[in-house]
Design a protein around this nucleic acid. Sequence first.
DNA 1: TTTCAGGATGAATCTTCCA
DNA 2: ATGGAAGATTCATCCTGAA
Lengths: 371, 371
Amino acid sequence: MTKMTKITSASALPLNTILDGDCIDVMNSLPEASVDLIFADPPYNLQLKGDLHRPDNSRVDAVDDHWDQFASFEVYDKFTKAWLKAARRLLKPNGAIWVIGSYHNIFRVGAALQDEGFWILNDVVWRKANPMPNFRGKRFTNAHETMIWASKGEGGKYTFNYEALKSLNEGIQMRSDWVLPICNGGERLKDANGDKAHPTQKPEGLLHRVLVGSTNPGDVVLDPFFGTGTTGAVAKMLGRDWIGIEREAAYREVATRRIADVRKYDKTALEVTRAKRSEPRVPFGQLVERGMLRPGEELFSLGNRHKAKVRADGTLIGNDVKGSIHQVGAHLEGAPSCNGWTYWHFKRDGKVVPIDVLRQQIRAEMEERPH
Amino acid sequence: MTKMTKITSASALPLNTILDGDCIDVMNSLPEASVDLIFADPPYNLQLKGDLHRPDNSRVDAVDDHWDQFASFEVYDKFTKAWLKAARRLLKPNGAIWVIGSYHNIFRVGAALQDEGFWILNDVVWRKANPMPNFRGKRFTNAHETMIWASKGEGGKYTFNYEALKSLNEGIQMRSDWVLPICNGGERLKDANGDKAHPTQKPEGLLHRVLVGSTNPGDVVLDPFFGTGTTGAVAKMLGRDWIGIEREAAYREVATRRIADVRKYDKTALEVTRAKRSEPRVPFGQLVERGMLRPGEELFSLGNRHKAKVRADGTLIGNDVKGSIHQVGAHLEGAPSCNGWTYWHFKRDGKVVPIDVLRQQIRAEMEERPH
DNA sequence: TTTCAGGATGAATCTTCCA
DNA sequence: ATGGAAGATTCATCCTGAA
């Protein structure tokens, strides 16, 4: 079961635990460069004035909690920089962060991220399928929130499961705008009175996409504003380790119960379509060594416009140019670069086949008998 | 005809004119509290490094203009605060401002707006119908830009034509996310060589919605980064007065010709016929993200002959084949294609239900609350 | 005249490995 | 660290020219 532990000095990572305390202090007590991903849903600093009523005169249950009150932008900025600095210290060099917010705070958060050295990768818009209307008709329906995705710094080798996200989106590259419903119905946690347990509970679908896209199974995900634990619940389902920080005891209790009830998906369900880039490199020469292609055999370009001859050392010669499959292809096309694997084809039984088929054959064998 | 005039001292408002010069100097030369709306499309400070090529090896014509180069965030912030301060001075007490940007600059702009005393009313997302893809598969498609709408200060009695916008949106309250195509085709202005006249020309549809929503006929609209004059062209069509500021002579010339050709709409031209929407595409992955199907859950074919397991990325695995619901169905049936939506079924409460039911559920929600 | 195939292109912070 | 080579990677829209 989930434990609540107070960490007071640098120590081993308290995985799958909700830590009690101020998130800045707690983060500073954890070992540096130890976390793969941070997901943060900080206070929005809403600055709401009076009550708001619907056209039917019912009162809107607004976010008026003490933890969302700041005296000024200056105070909010100071708080933001402090927790971002502590968060950045915790991240591994190739770690990344997601922060969600609305127009009340997201511009200050985004500027602070850049000032602290994070490198923004995308801003992602969560387009709510079912937002609350603007009852007074004085502004546009506030129908979205903004998330910022950033690596620890420029050049960080962040995780991005491109193919998995493409699969989630019916084979089309995932865009920076995500349409998802807000959290309600059975997913919305209630307190003992039947009221919502937390005013800003995020939908699990949002975290699902974030975690599938930017972490791998076994990664450590930290949420410094844990609330009722959506991050932990989805991380557990997806086989990621998680750490939550939350200073309100009531939220910790709800989250603890919630996560205890979550079951992890089985292993094959967690395997995700991999990018080619993460597959092992196969030198073209290996196709020749193994007799899949014979020295002297001719290869044909896409469209049959060019041809080249295979040499015993795994280079090609075509039109008096010698070199790798990529170099000869690029030269013949007058292009800055060329992927020889998809460019070159050979003939078998009258059919024209891309040489990449042979590479896939070798990779399949490697999967059966890894070495 | 549009004139180009150099204003050097406070004077009467030079309406329907493109002013030559640095926008800060020019704004400071105009009388204060004289403008109803400012629309600003400032430099984004993109900080691009090398060239980018498409998979077909064609080179992307990127924004590498001198006017988009800043030495640091600090320099950019200083510039931003200076032009915002000048802009705020020009606004009437009940005036408002729109600023558009991307994640490169919008967070700095938004924070500066708040620091200068503007009061944010909404952030509005322009969701591009046809953005440029992410060619390397390293990030999300950058499919939107962000606009911030702010009044001169808290309590400002800004203009908001609620009913007009509601009509534009088929009788439903206008949301903070707008789907509009990027500017291309006949609307995109070309130079003498047939190349785009300006790298970042905004679509007239965007300005149409901004001006219909937040100005009245006869209002004065100022654009301090006029470029090729989309703001002026749409303002003229809609019977608003406009002032442009632009320091590049080539852009001023293109804009002058363009606006001269614009005719103010008559009433019937404003009536727009709207295409009936085809049914929105729902990715299968959304069923998984939203918890309607669990990763690891089994699906059954028509006739119960085959089964497959749902994976976290919205692909299926069945009989050692992985892929989309359509691909796995086609493979198991030995068919060239298969509509996975009608082929696959799941069990709930002992009943076998086609997954298409879940898709219809999502579409019904979208219809109730379109976006 | 209509349809279809092919080409061009859009505010982009767009690779990774090994020597 | 740095340079060179391997090799992975695109969606919607509009226009042109052929059929």
